[in-house]
């Protein structure tokens, strides 16, 4: 009798080709709604920038020496990475897994659960890059991008997208019901959105909030996006990159192992 494979290492048994096949399926489906999707992705930052930049910005002169519009836009672009991956790996993934039983079909083929999860995570990252690139184009049109280093923002979003996908997929794997995503958004995504230095610098916050904010993944993506867009990259930004890399690598096996536990009883 073959030995039982220990669960925690099961993610090592994924096949890159299998994961790519599931990614390809998602891409195939997405291709059809691509024009609408880009149009919507285009509208959203425009609305934000009009409201924040010109609405609130009218009452503020500068933040940290930057026009408020520039400050917000170069931080807000980072949220594209978060939302692209998060919607894909929460609601979309859950509906496919639980209601559509799409995973049940795929795992009867040479693909395993681990391929499906990893394919889904990479697809979430892909959405981040697509969405983030459109966002970047919009803020460039608003004249807020000052450095060619901004070209490194899409690759940054691939990495950040992976991180947010892995976090979201981990929650999805243990989520007992679709209603609980409300908690994920209310208790994790929204606070992160507000306290990651997008709308105001974190320096002014009380010490403990500053420390808490430092631990949120989004704040590091915001730091890096802003530095790249403005060309103000400094040595301490290596910490942000290291933080994102560490979380992504450390959490990567989790959704695979947990989804396997959920689907293979």
């Amino acid at each position: 009798m073959a030995p039982r494979i220990p669960r925690l290492s099961s993610f090592l048994f994924f096949s890159p080709r299998g994961a790519f096949r599931f990614w390809q399926r998602n891409a195939y489906i997405f291709r059809r709604i691509f024009p609408e999707s880009v149009a919507v992705n285009f509208m959203e930052p425009v609305i934000y920038l009009l409201a924040m930049g010109f609405g609130i910005g009218a009452y503020l002169s500068t933040i940290g020496g930057l026009p408020y519009l520039t400050f917000v836009a170069t931080g807000l672009v980072a949220t594209a990475a978060m939302f692209g991956a998060t919607f894909e790996c929460t609601y979309n993934a859950y509906v496919q897994m639980y209601y559509e039983k799409a995973y049940d079909a795929v795992i009867t083929t040479p693909l395993g659960v681990e391929d499906v999860v990893i394919g889904e995570v990479w697809w979430g990252a892909t959405r981040s890059v697509l969405y983030g690139t459109v966002f970047l184009a919009v803020i460039t049109l608003f004249g807020t991008v000052r450095s060619p280093l901004a070209l490194l923002i899409p690759p940054l979003f691939l990495l950040s997208g992976l991180m947010f996908s892995v976090i979201a997929m981990t929650f999805t794997a243990v989520n007992p019901s679709i209603d609980y995503f409300t908690f994920y958004f209310a208790l994790f995504v929204t606070p992160m959105f507000m306290f990651s230095g997008i709308f105001f610098p974190l320096d002014a916050l009380p010490g403990w909030v500053k420390i808490a904010a430092w631990f949120t993944p989004l704040s590091h993506v915001v730091n890096l996006s802003r530095a790249l867009a403005l060309g103000t990259v400094e040595a301490h930004h290596a910490t942000d990159l290291a933080w994102i890399l560490t979380v992504t690598v450390a959490m990567f096996p989790l959704p695979v192992v947990l989804m396997r536990r959920r689907l293979v009883k």
Binding site: G18, R21, F22, Q24, R25, Y28, I29, E100, K101, A102, D104, A105, V106, T108, T109, P110, L111
Partner: peptide, 29 residues
């Protein structure tokens, strides 16, 4: 699994795809 054909008890068709695409995408797996 590469050499099996499986009809599960529940229908697990890919609702995001058309009838023909269901077969084409499945073949890609």
């Amino acid at each position: 699994k590469a050499r099996l054909g499986v009809v599960t008890q529940d229908n697990t068709l890919d609702t995001a795809l058309t009838v023909r695409e269901n077969l084409v995408i499945f073949a890609r797996y």
